[in-house]
Design a protein around this nucleic acid. Structure first.
Lengths: 220, 220
DNA sequence: AGAACTTGCAACACTGATGACGCAACTTCG
DNA sequence: CGAAGTTGCGTCATCAGTGTTGCAAGTTCT
């Protein structure tokens, strides 16, 4: 890519960082925001943004790359393969939340196929693999049930992380605790009450979907 | 709004419907798609789209309204307040999934504050209220634990619905069953193994967040 | 069949966003 | 201090998407 560009001067570096942060702030509220708005939020002229990032896409790419690096670092720092699964799960969650709270937009862009650059995609799929690995180990350790598809487990995990990051009510550690607790124990009561039937003995859930309403009806 | 417009002719009505469906298909893949692309997907001239929908926003609004009507119908058809909470939960989930699978984009737009029209917003917050009511009842019935914040419970529920709709692997009933099961029991083992500690006895989860990487680094 | 309606096509106007320049003033760094 | 680098500002060029209009050809409905 931008292979051999001489290192930026310190002030320019600061500007780049400021722009990235502003872009995250603005785009997470309105993904269709203009460069102008981003520049304004960064306290910088619009032309400066264009000077640092060749195009809008380049900016988003840079955000994704920046966020991805933090993401990878967050996972690494938790050393998921060194600790027992349950602990690892908790640590990784807390660390990732810390990043995702501040870089939600950039990270979501990074995981959308086709938008991400090769490096970004690589890191994400690598983390995904480590996640699966962690889940497999959690399974053999008995932390995770054996009858759940890994695919679904990861989906649920990612979804909960997304939600927890959105909510922002509390410290990452607290959010992580609640998240892991919810994921493993669910929201139902522990042992003692009738567990939710997997295939509920309900009168074959009537395909209760009503006849399609009329799209042109003037709304009752 | 468009108060007194004479009913459309049958072919026009069909066109409107076709456009709405095409728009959902296209926009769910690429929210920034142009009217042109939507028209093409609908097998219709671009001008026709503009004839039926005054502006892009109007089109999205119409999609939201259309989806919202199906959404409300789906909830109603499940009669959540007539059945025992667990059954109701399952029924509602299955019905809503059926709609959300086909109208994911429109529904997500509908729940974004500010974008939705008054009627759409009203219906959604009404459904939200019924959801909370259902959860409250589930709580007193012992289907839901008492120590979870209702806010978090609803967030988790919505997030799981979103994921289940995304995955699309299976019939709505099967997805609903898995979803409800996951939400209530979690992914951890049932009674028998050490339940996940709410506050894990871990060496105070080191703020393992590493030093911020250099955004301008040429990527190792 | 005939009136009323709908659609495709082609053309046009308009707007907002994007991206590129050059220059003067300022900051960093050796 | 002085060279090199950086930023703000004004300016210009371009372009894609949006939204309109008029008309001929086709469809629906009575």
């Amino acid at each position: 890519m931008s292979g051999t560009t001489r290192a930026l001067r310190s002030d320019a570096e600061r500007t780049v960082r400021t722009i990235l942060e502003a872009a995250e702030r603005v785009l997470s509220r309105n993904p269709a925001a203009s460069m102008e708005q981003i520049a304004e939020a960064a306290g910088v002229a619009r032309t400066t943004v264009h000077r640092r990032f060749a195009s809008r896409d380049a900016l988003v790419e840079a955000m994704a790359e920046w966020a991805t690096r933090q993401f990878a670092a967050a996972v690494d720092a938790a050393r998921p393969e060194q600790a027992p699964p349950l602990v690892a799960l908790y640590q990784v969650t807390a660390n990732v939340l810390r990043v995702k709270i501040d870089w939600g937009f950039a990270m979501s862009r990074a995981s959308v196929a086709g938008v991400a650059g090769a490096e970004v995609a690589r890191v994400h799929s690598e983390v995904e693999a480590r996640c699966d690995q962690l889940f497999r180990q959690a399974r053999t350790t008995g932390v995770l049930r054996e009858d759940v598809e890994p695919e679904w487990a990861r989906r649920v995990y990612y979804a909960l992380i997304h939600e927890a990051a959105q909510s922002r009510d509390g410290e990452p550690e607290a959010l992580a605790a609640r998240l892991v607790d919810t994921m493993l124990r669910g929201l139902g009561p522990g042992p003692g009450l009738p567990p939710a039937p997997t295939a509920p003995s309900v009168p074959a859930p009537t395909p209760t979907a009503p006849p399609a309403p009329d799209p042109t009806a003037p709304a009752p």
